[in-house]
Computed example of a mutant assay.
Amino acid sequence: MKTMKHTVALMALVGASSAFALDADFNTIDADGNGAISMEEASKYPELMSQFKDLDTDMNGELSEQEFAKAQ
């Protein structure tokens, strides 16, 4: 029973962190339209900023559309 509670709690945590509510899509956040979301652009969205470093898998300081899609 204890294991079941831990499993359910872990599933809820994972679900909540990967499916955060973001009020804008990639093209809206990419304000300059260069095909990438900079940290400056992301800074207007606290939910996105909290995951920015984890989403930036190539560590170039920007989120590509593919990297951003992982946040959805």
Score class of each variant (00 low, 15 high):
residue 21 A to P: 10
residue 4 M to P: 08
residue 16 A to Q: 09
residue 17 S to K: 14
residue 72 Q to V: 12
residue 35 G to R: 05
residue 11 M to N: 14
residue 3 T to S: 09
residue 65 E to W: 05
residue 54 D to Q: 07
residue 33 G to C: 01
residue 61 G to C: 01
residue 39 M to E: 10
residue 70 K to M: 12
residue 27 N to E: 15
residue 43 S to W: 02
residue 63 L to F: 03
residue 25 D to H: 08
residue 40 E to H: 11
residue 63 L to I: 05
residue 48 L to T: 05
residue 55 L to S: 06
residue 22 L to F: 08
residue 47 E to H: 04
residue 10 L to D: 08
residue 41 E to Q: 09
residue 32 D to N: 09
residue 48 L to K: 03
residue 70 K to N: 11
residue 65 E to D: 07
residue 50 S to K: 10
residue 21 A to F: 15
residue 38 S to M: 15
residue 7 T to I: 12
residue 34 N to E: 13
residue 47 E to T: 07
residue 60 N to G: 02
residue 25 D to R: 06
residue 40 E to M: 11
residue 51 Q to I: 00
residue 60 N to C: 11
residue 21 A to V: 07
residue 15 G to I: 14
residue 22 L to G: 06
residue 14 V to S: 15
residue 23 D to P: 06
residue 54 D to G: 10
residue 47 E to S: 13
residue 37 I to Q: 05
residue 21 A to E: 04
residue 63 L to N: 02
residue 61 G to Q: 03
residue 50 S to D: 08
residue 26 F to S: 03
residue 30 D to N: 09
residue 60 N to W: 04
residue 27 N to Y: 02
residue 14 V to D: 08
residue 58 D to M: 01
residue 15 G to E: 12
residue 7 T to A: 14
residue 68 F to N: 00
residue 48 L to S: 05
residue 67 E to W: 04
residue 71 A to K: 01
residue 34 N to T: 12
residue 32 D to I: 03
residue 52 F to P: 01
residue 29 I to K: 02
residue 30 D to S: 09
residue 65 E to Q: 11
residue 48 L to W: 08
residue 19 A to T: 11
residue 72 Q to S: 09
residue 19 A to L: 09
residue 29 I to M: 05
residue 51 Q to W: 14
residue 67 E to I: 10
residue 37 I to E: 00
residue 19 A to C: 13
residue 10 L to G: 15
residue 45 Y to H: 11
residue 33 G to N: 02
residue 42 A to M: 11
residue 23 D to K: 08
residue 33 G to V: 01
residue 36 A to Y: 09
residue 66 Q to L: 03
residue 63 L to T: 01
residue 61 G to D: 02
residue 24 A to E: 14
residue 19 A to K: 05
residue 22 L to P: 02
residue 26 F to N: 02
residue 71 A to E: 00
residue 28 T to V: 04
residue 10 L to E: 11
residue 56 D to Y: 00
residue 70 K to C: 09
residue 20 F to A: 12
residue 19 A to G: 14
residue 5 K to W: 15
residue 72 Q to I: 05
residue 64 S to T: 05
residue 69 A to S: 12
residue 36 A to F: 13
residue 64 S to N: 14
residue 12 A to R: 12
residue 49 M to W: 09
residue 19 A to V: 14
residue 49 M to V: 13
residue 4 M to S: 13
residue 12 A to T: 12
residue 45 Y to N: 06
residue 47 E to C: 13
residue 2 K to L: 10
residue 1 M to I: 12
residue 4 M to L: 10
residue 41 E to T: 03
residue 12 A to H: 05
residue 46 P to W: 03
